[in-house]
Design a protein around this nucleic acid. Structure first.
Ligand SMILES: [Mn+2]
Ligand SMILES: [Mn+2]
Ligand SMILES: [Zn+2]
Ligand SMILES: [Zn+2]
Lengths: 142, 142
DNA sequence: GAACAGAATTGGAATAATTCCAATTCGCAA
DNA sequence: TTGCGAATTGGAATTATTCCAATTCTGTTC
């Protein structure tokens, strides 16, 4: 599912179902908004986006939908320091680069590198999740 | 500066000065409390610790001291998801393992691995900081 | 097709970590 | 001793997020 993918409402619902998420119009709208524009928006930004197509949706529902999507692994929650949580629909294993200008970029992480990181831990550690965040300056256009 | 180091008040003050931190009794107490017990405490936990030796210190001051120590690179701030910030006096480059039971452990990270991570980025990215967090289950005694 | 039941949504209140602020106190230097 | 900028303090404010109770949906059973 690349950034350019355009999903018909039907297939959107199917994707949700297949991941154990009961498809409601709110969940579809929220998910769609993340697929359409991959800028790692906050809950507030998602709220602003979805209001245009679903003007009666509430912020609480946006939080609910995002939680459900994250719990069912359709979306990743990304945190930088104490900033509001950002949401990411890129399911490939990847790191995040947090630009000083505020942009958040996906950084591909080959399995090889992930394994290297996992090897830093003693064997009797059970790793559920590895998170890699870069901070710095990214060139203007990328 | 290992966990077992015991600093005389004088050398404590000197360390602060050398890092550009004007040594005040509150800053010394806060820093000492982080050096003494390397459990990655939150600001509240630091507050509880330092109250025993400095009963009149305020929570605002604890936050101020921690900020100053972090800004002057004597202490690292560690964040997991949306949990309260934890503080770490280990200056060696290292990752963090967040145990499901709540413990936070330091994981050594060789320069080699850090370089490998840095290499994931295009050359025109200017990296200020790399953060690696593991989540999972760690064996009981380690 | 009505009725029911569980799930989802909603608006608003509550929570809690952190920051802000204005007043006081501190510590060094003149 | 006095002056002055910096640090500390207590309490109020902020704000992302969670909680809650009431309402609305949705899918199923009669
Ligand atoms: Mn940043
Ligand atoms: Mn955790
Ligand atoms: Zn991402
Ligand atoms: Zn640490």
């Amino acid at each position: 599912m690349a950034a350019s993918d355009i999903l018909k409402p039907e297939s959107l619902a199917k994707v949700l179902s297949e991941h154990g998420v009961r498809p409601t119009s709110q969940r579809e709208t929220v998910y769609q908004s993340l697929l359409n524009k991959r800028t790692h928006p906050t809950a507030d930004e998602v709220f602003a986006r979805v209001r245009e197509t679903a003007p009666t949706i509430s912020l609480a529902t946006v939080y609910n939908c995002l939680d459900v999507l994250v719990q069912n692994k359709l979306v990743r929650a990304v945190n930088f320091e104490r900033a509001p949580t950002q949401y990411c629909a890129n399911l490939a294993p990847h790191a995040h680069f947090h630009d000083e200008a505020g942009r958040t970029l996906d950084i591909e992480m080959p399995t090889e590198v992930i394994d290297q990181l996992r090897d830093l831990l003693p064997d009797d550690f059970d790793v559920k999740h590895i998170e890699v965040n870069f901070h710095g300056r990214a060139p203007q256009n990328d």
